[in-house]
Design a protein around this nucleic acid. Structure first.
Lengths: 166, 166
DNA sequence: GTCTATAAACTGATAGAC
DNA sequence: GTCTATCAGTTTATAGAC
């Protein structure tokens, strides 16, 4: 709901209807809206930690893996990421803290492989991919996959170019 | 208000109080909330067009200019950009359309100078800078300037490296 | 031109039936 | 465990006084 209609549209009424329960039923499982948000953030955190492990052991290297992973494919981490973004934007401070921590961890793994400058460049490119997915993806449906793939290939070529030089 | 408290917090009441008028007074100047949003989008559009002209004539080149401009300095364009982002995130479709158009124009100017691959990389890095400013800047105050400057220098080094190679 | 007062609709949350 | 009914607080917008 956060992805499709934004923070404002993700009311208890709307969430309950989408989940196929009544508002009272929803509030039985989550005593208040903040508890629902907390569950979302925990889920995001778990998925992000799994991603960090996957980066570390990726055969193609953390940098290439990270950029490829930043494609919007409607997967659980992508969805959690964008949903959490919607909360961070309304100045939800707990969400902002968690985001900062995860971003820092990602940067650390990238720095080990690529050095500080390139690691930062890669993380910003990845953030840029998410940023654009966020903007274009109000509807929630997957973006034009061929187009996004081409853009990622484009970024990977730049990455290879720099690695060959640094 | 959009930057500091998000779309949800930017109520007519809050905007009126900040502007130093009553709600009735605000609604005299802007007949409804949508008109207020439209004025913001027009302002963003105007500033973005000015930026495109500045990019084209920048002595250091469009790419370097663009990355430097993406630092959050609390300037009018930065503020308009982030404010508009807040609207795009709640699935405000008109905002999304305008964003897409401006992003496309920026990419075209960059492509003329840098070629498709690098232009895309630069625009994504810039988007990433905004994305992070957005997340960390809930409070609205300027970010740690020294830190951001160092990050931009980092990105510029990568850009120079690739340009030397391609 | 700006204000107060108020209407109409919506949101999060509680109470209690089944 | 899920539902309906309802409350108190907001939010956008209108009406009319000054």
């Amino acid at each position: 709901m956060l992805i499709e209609v934004g923070e404002r549209g993700a009311t208890l009424d709307a969430v309950a209807a989408r989940a196929g329960v009544s508002k009272g039923g929803l509030l039985y499982h989550y005593p208040n809206k903040e508890a629902l948000v907390a569950a979302l953030l925990d889920r995001f955190d778990t998925l992000a930690q799994e991603e960090i492990e996957a980066m570390k052991t990726a055969p193609e290297g953390a940098g290439v893996y990270f950029i490829k992973a930043a494609i919007w494919d409607g997967g659980p981490l992508d969805r959690s990421f964008v949903a959490a973004t919607r909360l961070a934007e309304v100045a939800h401070s707990e969400t902002q803290r968690r985001f900062a921590r995860i971003q820092k961890q990602w940067l650390e793994v990238l720095t080990e492989e690529l050095g500080e400058d390139l690691a930062r460049a890669v993380r910003y490119m990845s953030d840029g991919l998410y940023f654009n997915a966020m903007l274009e993806n109000g509807g929630g449906q997957a973006m034009d996959r061929a187009k996004t793939d081409a853009e990622v290939e484009s970024l990977l070529r730049v990455l290879e170019l720099v690695r060959g030089r640094s």
